[in-house]
Design a protein around this nucleic acid. Structure first.
Lengths: 214, 214
DNA sequence: TAGATTGTTAATCGATTAACAATC
DNA sequence: TAGATTGTTAATCGATTAACAATC
């Protein structure tokens, strides 16, 4: 159904569309036109129609888009209709914050395991999932089908742990270590750099200050 | 020095350049050519030169770029040479994770205060900063010059708290609530949506799976 | 000087916007 | 049917890449 060769720019916008449609759905809105959505999201109506049409016609002339249908279809494109078994490696504050973030579950990301080196965390459970020690990781991966490993680890550990999980069948990594992981071609990685986003904020503040003291 | 009208795309790449240059600096590398940097970062050398030239000539023909100088200059462009007093509102796992992230300090973001509604956190300190109760926020903002408020709050609280801090002089917000904040024009906001990044990972997995079962 | 590599212009490519015919 | 709004083509705009003259 979905065509190959959709541009990065379009994909990058889909999650945001999905979120806004989710909000409309919760608010009980049944249908919406590209023009109304564009006002809400501060993008052009043209772009919304163009983006959606990459995947086929989800709307109807003279009517607009059915919110629930569109929400579901974008969910399918993003793969949110399947289950994604995940584990989190590194159960510090960030690991625990992610583990507690229940909305992931709603989108199909189900937490199967939590790992850490810190023996003090042994016995601790988060949302019913016990923190396991790193020594048990390899065996765990062999016994359980896990799709995504979420790494909240210090830079120094991230690379070796990434290699370990890949050896044991993991094909996708969501990386919060403060370094880009450069892994084999067939491993799918998203490197998250919160500090990049903070630096952009800082840049915008600088520009703002410059303009306002002229 | 820096010109107006630099494109978003360029700004978006600066933090990544900055990070890589930081790594080179730590590794003791003194100079680097756009071509070597391009291999390391998997972008074109042309793009690196084009990007940097938006801000003036940082390199030297026949030599390349001095790593330390370039690092410092990009830091200046991003505003990392100034101090940015910050507070974190919401001292749960995510708030604590951010408070503990010491590298922020290195880039000029100094933590001045931590706030939460949860009385159980009263008395808890993170890196020497005590968690204060939300009732004290307004007074605190009036007595201290704070530039950035970091919000790690549930959706339902985010909007009212954002309005409160803005009334008390905050001009920049780094927002981790699961909703976009639409605030007055003169407030600078970065909305962080971790789930967007996870959805992109999910999309990439889907495409990968499609291709490999053909 | 010869070699290397930038700064910068020109060419290409892709993404966004505008416009409108198709159609519900 | 008339009105509304999509799907889609064409026009515009911007960003990336290629090429090379300037210069260290």
């Amino acid at each position: 159904m979905e065509e190959r060769g959709i541009s990065r720019a379009v994909i990058g916008r889909l999650p945001r569309y999905y979120r806004y449609l989710g909000e409309l759905l919760e608010a009980g809105v049944e249908r919406i036109s590209s023009s109304d959505l564009s006002k809400k999201m501060r993008v052009t109506a043209s772009q919304i129609r163009q983006d959606l049409n990459n995947f086929g016609g989800f709307g109807q002339q003279g009517y607009g888009y059915n919110v629930k249908y569109l929400y579901t279809e974008i969910g399918k494109i993003l793969g949110l209709n399947r289950e994604h078994p995940i584990i989190i490696i590194g159960a510090g504050n960030l690991g625990q914050a992610l583990a507690n973030y229940a909305s992931f579950e709603k989108s199909g990301f189900t937490l199967k395991g939590l790992f850490d080196v810190n023996p003090r965390l042994e016995g601790v459970s988060i949302r019913g999932i016990p923190v396991r020690m790193m020594d048990d990781l390899e065996e765990f991966l062999q016994k359980n089908e896990i799709e995504i490993a979420i790494l909240t680890l210090p830079k120094s550990k991230a690379i070796e742990v990434a290699e370990l999980v890949i050896e044991n069948g993991i094909r996708a990594i969501w990386n919060f270590a403060h370094t880009d992981l450069n892994l084999p071609e067939d491993v799918i990685v998203e490197n998250v750099h919160l500090s990049d986003s903070l630096m952009k904020l800082s840049y915008n503040i600088s520009r703002y200050n410059e303009e306002h003291q002229k």
